[in-house]
Design a binder for these strands. Structure first.
Lengths: 148, 148
DNA sequence: TCTTGCTCCTCTAGTTGCTAGAGAGATTAA
DNA sequence: TTAATCTCTCTAGCAACTAGAGGAGCAAGA
């Protein structure tokens, strides 16, 4: 049986994050020691590893919840898991496409910025005037990809 | 003079978002009508357009704040704006690289999932067992890119 | 003039996926 | 025993908004 700190080391998931996962029901409530400290066995460790890998692959927690409930019923068809992974793949591809367009536009801005003065700065100018940028940005609700 | 709704239409930024920008000081406090409604002139509209473009290019609000304060002093060197844009470009490139790796791994998972039963499902298996996936994921604090 | 229907106001709270900190108790090594 | 290092619960905070309540402003038609 591991305490939460050991589990954290073993899994690469931080202690508060483990507690958070328990709180939102991704992990079952842990057993407790006599002194009320959480204790984890091998099953919990595997489940946490599963969650970490899925997070690393960009799956949102809701999708992971679904995948976990699927993996609890190993006799069922793989189709649902496949669908979740496919959706994630499509999302990743869309983000790559979007970011690639952003990259091109940033590069264009920067190349034209010849190191002068703000008044002539392409960066400022392009941001201030839509006519000076090339890509068409659909006016979407959620605009962006922000650095993490 | 535009009311907030017209400004929203003109700029493509939602009404509550405009108020939010004012609250956090990205936009100056708007003039008010006799009935306490916000009124905007051309300057505010330009500033908001600037913000929207920058957001679309993925600049975080803090960087936009810096860019705006730069653009208020047009005699200064362009170097600071250039640095901000370069940092953003680097961030975008890093995210593309990361996402491209994720994409490859997701594709590998999916190709091997032959439409069987959960027990044999590659998706579940790979997520549950790190030995079955190829890329080395450094155990980083902030793990992921999550779909927006 | 009144009413209808839209906009606008402020305020609070929720989203996602955590992270940070306070103040107190548990456990372990010297 | 005592000190150091966990661990506990709780609250609050991060980005960048979004949603909703409850009330007021305003333009146009009957």
């Amino acid at each position: 049986m591991l305490t939460i700190g050991k589990l954290s080391q073993a899994s690469g998931v931080k202690v508060p994050t483990i507690r958070y996962y328990e709180e939102i029901g991704l992990l079952p409530e842990a057993e407790r020691s006599a002194g009320n400290q959480r204790l984890y066995g091998r099953k919990a460790q595997e489940r946490l590893t599963f969650i970490r890998h899925a997070r690393e692959l960009g799956f949102p927690l809701d999708a992971i919840r679904d995948l976990l409930s699927l993996s609890d019923r190993p006799d069922q068809s793989c189709a649902a898991a496949d669908a979740i992974a496919s959706a994630q793949l499509a999302a990743v591809e869309a983000r790559i496409a979007r970011l690639t367009a952003l990259k091109a536009e940033l590069e264009r801005m920067l190349i034209q910025c010849a190191g002068g003065v703000i008044a002539d700065c392409r960066v400022i100018e392009v941001l201030g005037d839509h006519a000076k940028c090339c890509a068409d940005h659909a006016p979407s609700g959620h605009l962006i990809e922000v650095a993490g």
